[in-house]
Nucleic acid binder design. Sequence first.
DNA 1: AGCCAGGACAAGT
DNA 2: ACTTGTCATGGC
Length: 263
Amino acid sequence: MILDPKRFSAAHTFDCGQCFRWMRQPDGSYKGVAGGRPATIYDKDGRAVIECDPGDLDYFNNYLDLDRDYASIALSFPRDDFTSAAIEHGYGLRILRQEPWEALISFIISQCNNIQRIQGIISRLCSLFGDKIADDLYAFPTAERLAQLCEEDLAPLRAGYRAAYILSAAKSVASGSFVPDDIYSMDTPEARKALMSLNGVGGKVADCVLLFGYGKLDAFPVDTWMKKARAYYPGGMDPTSFGSYAGIAQQYIFYYARSGMKK
DNA sequence: AGCCAGGACAAGT
DNA sequence: ACTTGTCATGGC
């Protein structure tokens, strides 16, 4: 299946730090699972090539946000040298529309952690408690499944103090006291507040869940790398200056800052 | 050995 | 509304 979204980069999309489960294969393609659907994805001549069940193609078209014109959005951002370099560096990245529940748990795990270790913890979480889909491919475990567990069960994850947060979120969702789908209809500030009612979810994690899980592209997560990047914005780094797609700008900047600002 | 990694939380000003 | 210590783990 070949889709033509203009300038899709699998590497920049899957390795920019927004997701943790797409694994680069020796041939440069990325293999993973989204929404319980397995796929192998790569780019060819700037186009997205998706190997998946034909019935899942619409899902991945939406998942990869392929219908959005990122080039035009990038042109709408203020043109300082740093932002321009960041956009060039992340050429072809797209903000994934990940499953909200997976994004929630993933970014709870991300706090005060590094990306390699986050990947390991999530990988163990899925292989231990997620349904097996194929060889080395697992669905993300459901809230109902995780809600049955205790901290001891999560010890093999080596998630540290975050294990309690995972269980707490699972129980909130499984019991119905927190309904992930309710977030969609809220505006970003209201949705942010609702997410922060969960134990272990502060402002930054909430912003990541909104951006990467709910497609709320005005959410603007600020982590340690964004704080480092702030030094390159003499007048300050004002999210509102990037408009309603500030989250996309954020991801270019984050990815560039984390890369060491090279190339 | 100490510092850092896509922080959150409670307790103290 | 801001500052500080603590939380668990691992790489450098």
